[in-house]
């Protein structure tokens, strides 16, 4: 029982910490909010994206290209934000050089989607960096390697769909 109590107090400390400490007490030397997780490693994707070399077609700025191949991106539907907010060029560099760009125009790699997406989705970015959003590719004990935004979300249509559950739960009690 002594053991269980000792354990219980350990957990309670975390809970207190999570609530930011109780009022009336002097602030702790290091509050829980100061605990910053190590920046995660990110699962590489860029190396596996060779199937779509943009530069094969996109050799001149978009404006200079004739709209003869509207079907070239038939598999891509922009269901991310209203068209007035986002177009292809919001993320894709123009003239297309097979890379992405930040809103300010700076180039950003395909493996750094968290920087690109984080421009709008700051809260998700913070949660992801901390570990509350997304998934890690490694177990709990290894150095943290997180799956980047595009590892789970299709950037063109980032929502998760509606589908049947993976299994049917049998009615309990053998019904």
């Amino acid at each position: 029982m002594r053991f269980a109590l000792a354990g219980a107090s350990v957990v309670s400390i975390f809970v207190l910490a999570a609530c930011g400490g109780s009022p009336g007490r002097p602030p702790r030397p290091m509050s829980a909010l100061d605990i910053v997780p190590a920046p995660p490693g990110v699962v590489e994707r860029a190396a596996f994206m060779e199937k779509a070399p943009c530069t094969r077609c996109h050799t001149v700025p978009l404006a200079a290209m004739s709209p003869v191949h509207p079907a070239a991106h038939w598999g891509v539907a922009q269901r991310h934000a209203p068209n007035e907010t986002m177009q292809c060029q919001t993320c894709h560099a123009d003239p297309v050089r097979g890379e992405l760009r930040m809103l300010g125009g700076a180039p950003v790699g395909f493996d750094e989607s968290h920087r690109l997406c984080g421009q709008c989705h700051a809260r998700q970015q913070k949660d992801w960096a901390g570990g509350a959003h997304g998934k890690r590719a490694t177990g709990w004990a290894s150095a943290r390697v997180a799956i980047g935004c595009t590892g789970c979300h299709n950037p063109h249509s980032p929502g998760f769909g509606r589908r049947l559950p993976a299994m049917t739960r049998k009615e309990a009690a053998g019904e």
Binding site: V10, V11, F14, V15, A17, A18, A32, L33, I35, P37, A38, D127, G130, G131, A132, H133, G134, K135, R136, W140, A141, R144, C152, F160
Partner: peptide
């Protein structure tokens, strides 16, 4: 979990994700 709703880790490691959640989220 396909949506990353589940977080697991070592409560005694201040660098762990679970500790970050406890410290930064309303739980």
């Amino acid at each position: 979990c396909p949506t990353g709703a589940r977080i697991f880790g070592n409560l005694l490691d201040p660098q762990s994700e679970i500790r970050w959640v406890l410290a930064n989220k309303k739980v």
